[in-house]
């Protein structure tokens, strides 16, 4: 069972672990206490995935190359893009 706090897991990582948790619970054969702990971890993982699915916001950045050739990323807000696209579309 994973020990990382679910709040820091990516969707993929949380989903993969949730799959493992369910498989282990379904296989059974572990002490009751361990089952309960595993179940609680599963519930937390599910909540994490559901939260990410429901509340995720696409983050968009734009690369800028500086004089020395170094790259820098600037955040683009949805409004910026809509404006840009709206004026030239």
């Amino acid at each position: 069972m994973g020990t990382e706090p679910v709040e820091t897991l990516s969707f993929d990582a949380a989903l993969a672990e949730l799959g493992e948790v369910v498989a282990r619970l379904e296989a059974g054969g572990m002490p009751l206490e361990e089952s309960i702990a595993l179940y609680e971890r599963g519930v937390a993982l599910h909540a994490r995935c559901a939260h990410l699915l429901d509340d995720a916001e696409l983050r968009v950045q734009r690369l800028v190359e500086e004089a020395g050739g170094a790259l820098r990323a600037i955040d683009l807000r949805p409004d910026d893009l809509d404006d840009e696209a709206g004026t030239s579309a």
Binding site: F11, L52, L53, A56, E57, L58, R59, V60, Q61, R62, L63, A73, L76
Partner: peptide, 8 residues
Amino acid sequence: PLTRVVLA
């Protein structure tokens, strides 16, 4: 929307 985009 769980992903990120970088525009070049």
